[in-house]
Amino acid sequence: MTDEQFKAKTVLVTGAARGIGRAAVVEFARRGAQVVAADLDGDALAVLGREHPDAKTVVADVAQEADVQAMVAAAVDRFGSLDVLIANAGIIPMAPLLETSTADWEQVMAIDGRGMFLSCRYAAEQMVPAGSGAIVCVSSISGMAGQSGQSAYGAAKFVATGLVKHLAVELAPAGIRVNGVAPGTIRTDRVVALETEPGGPEYLADIVRKHPLGRLGEPSEVAAAMAFLASDESSFVTGAVLAVDGGYLAQ
């Protein structure tokens, strides 16, 4: 069933094969969008493509400029335009500062930082001539407030938050809105796997206690927030980073 809010609009989702990105593909398809799903994991992307054959799948590494250019070109070639970018691709390394190497820093900044910049840059290249468009960047509660053990990941998510603020101002005259979401801890496959790992159940119980609503979020709840920010229902919203965090940042 579809509500047709995005009928005839092209939505490009990065990091689309799993978790929040996968939920975004499902949500925008449900709302009638022409979806392009990009991810580095070709095998997982192929599974997604079989389950959602109307979506265009593109294997792409957002840290590589040529790949980003190619995935945007694939969206335009397939559907004729690019109306919405969901810049979701990222990795989540977590380690104390003294255990975080330069290589760890470079990797997360390449994917979560440079990858998001490149995705926004080449999406905007298509949107500016059209005079319209919406970009939603995935930040995090770690990109809004400090947390222990996230010196690399958290800093990269502050890049996402910063891009939202600066690009919202720069691209507004071109009719492009730029917003972000800041998820709390979401029940992705990786988080679910913690339940069977040593110390995982205790870690998850502690995380749940830190969210005032007393539970983890679902990928579909983040996807719904993305769809709102990309839709005409938020037509006077730009430069906002919407927390989808069960009250975590309100404390």
Rank of each mutant, 00 (worst) to 15 (best):
T2Q: 12
K7F: 10
A8Y: 04
K9H: 07
V11C: 09
A23W: 05
V26R: 10
A29R: 13
G32C: 11
A37Q: 00
A37E: 00
D39R: 04
D41G: 06
L45C: 04
R50L: 05
P53W: 03
P53Q: 04
A60G: 02
A63L: 02
Q64M: 14
Q64Y: 11
D67V: 11
M71H: 07
M71V: 09
A73E: 08
A74V: 09
A74G: 07
R78E: 09
F79Y: 10
D83M: 04
V84I: 13
I86N: 04
A87W: 03
N88I: 03
A89T: 00
A89D: 01
I92P: 00
P93H: 06
P93L: 04
L97H: 02
S101R: 03
S101L: 03
D104T: 09
Q107V: 00
A110Y: 03
D112P: 03
R114Q: 10
C120H: 12
Y122Q: 15
P129Y: 15
A130Y: 11
G131K: 14
V136S: 11
C137N: 09
V138M: 11
S140A: 07
S140Q: 04
I141H: 01
G143K: 00
M144W: 02
M144I: 06
G149P: 01
S151T: 01
Y153C: 02
G154N: 01
A156C: 05
F158G: 00
E170D: 11
L171N: 09
A172D: 13
A174N: 15
G175S: 08
V178A: 05
V178L: 09
V178K: 07
V178W: 06
G180E: 01
V181N: 09
V181M: 14
D189Y: 01
V191P: 02
V192H: 10
A193I: 07
E195H: 10
E197M: 15
G200Y: 07
G200V: 08
R209Y: 04
P212H: 04
R215E: 08
R215Q: 11
G217M: 04
G217V: 03
E218D: 14
S220V: 15
V222Y: 06
A225R: 03
A227F: 13
F228W: 11
A230Q: 08
S231Q: 12
F236Y: 15
T238C: 12
G239R: 12
A243P: 09
V244H: 02
